[in-house]
Design a protein around this nucleic acid. Sequence first.
RNA 1: GGUCUCGUGGCCGAGUGGCUAGGCACUGGUCUGCAAAACCACGUACAGCGGUUCGAAUCCGCUCGAGACCUCCA
Length: 495
Amino acid sequence: MKDLHFYNTLSRKKEKFIPINEGHVGMYVCGPTVYNNVHLGNVRTFLTFDILFRYLKALNYKVRYVRNITDVGHLVGDGDEGEDKIGKMAKLEQLEPMEVVQRYTNDFHHVLEQFNFLSPSIEPSATGHLIEQIEAVKVLIEKGLAYESNGSVYFDIEKYNEEGGNYGHLSGRILEDLLNETRELDGQSEKRNPLDFAIWKSASPEHIMQWPSPWGMGFPGWHLECTCMSAKYLGDQFDIHGGGMDLKFPHHECEIAQGTGLTGKEPVKYWMHSNMLTVNGQKMSKSLGNSFLPHELFTGSHPLLDQAYSPMTVRFFMLQSQYRSTLDFSNEALKGSQKAFKRLLNGLRVSSTLKYKADETQAIDEKKVAEIESAITGFYEALNDDLNTAVAIAQLFTMLKYINMIYVNQLHTSALGEEVFDKLIGNYKLFFEEILGLKEENGDQTAVLDGMLNLYSEFKENRRYDKVDEIRAYFKENGMVIKDLKHRIDWAWEE
RNA sequence: GGUCUCGUGGCCGAGUGGCUAGGCACUGGUCUGCAAAACCACGUACAGCGGUUCGAAUCCGCUCGAGACCUCCA
């Protein structure tokens, strides 16, 4: 089997993944700024790295996954002169900033839970690491890579590049071009160069979030928290840093500059960026007003939706594309995913009921055995190839086909042999639940359903078809269907 | 304006030189009291034009179209 490869934004090609410390992986993902509800576009990014986290664990790596909560320093609007996002929302809603933070952190956790995300190993917050950030600012000033101006401190990009830095490398930008193209903004006179970015901002008296520092009352710059928290928990150099494509520049570029400036070493070995979710071909974003909130999807209340879609349907929908492609959001596409997901889900339920039955008269069907085995290795190969979940899911459908064939007695388990049968059932469950993180969304209603099905079969034996149809209709109203198999009666989610 | 990405059958979406991606929808078949489900069968699609090559959706050029980043955004 081929080794694990990821597309590294730094080199712009797929690279073999070799962790810095064998058997261990350190992974940092930029979390949300908790001033607002997370929308579906945000969810896609976190999903990408949830899959990566799950997959690395499935490959027996010991993974430390750090995903931060940004609760200060992220400014509204252009440049470094905007209002703090949290502070602005706090004023609007007449709340303490930390109430805003708590409210939207809760929302974030709730949403991710609905989508069945694993918790990261550490979820640090920016306000919890002010000391580290102030220390980092001091070091950068000492090294001559940052300067104070009116109580604010800025990172000196020209100096950084003079001393061997490579600002612009990650996003493929040339410093000179950036300098020429930078728009002149009001209030940038504090900076030596318009490109310089704030690592500490002086706060005006009315600013509600501020802390004491050697440079007066203020608050940390947005980019600095990620540098400090990743270094604290993962070390000066770590394996994987992830985030949305739109953070590449300037956020991640600034992180590299800060990290390299502080330690003299490039902080990250593999940069991974997930692509945008689009609506009618346009990026989903809050500012464009075309973003969907998760609950709007779950209830079908968004004007562009004509029905509700469950969290797992949406999770599955997103996994049907590769994370580096844009993914377009539409009713038709979601409906297709809903049906496909339910087929797979029914397969999971069914597979847990199947038992191997030895039968000496059955010959091994080599062709089917080969197809099952290649589906299983194909699943790993797909994920090894830069987390290609779309191709991985295709393998799952091949496995599903055989599970269904056994279920309806079209295929005898002995034709596969016990070992292959166990691999089929075991891996299907592993892939579906553990690695792709999909799950049953409805509670266990087995007892009720069994009673109904007994009744159904009694009526059927007595040829009371009016009652038979009535029970079917009842099931259908509740999103289920009755399946009359040759040797038994069963139910399934209506696809 | 600068940098970059993309354009695949009715819909979504993999795929970077030759080998059936997959899903949904459609159609036919098997099964069934009728259905549903399941399984089987079924679509020669790669924006356009030109070039390289024995061979291109895949490489190169041009044209058209869409989008992203350059300013907060996952």
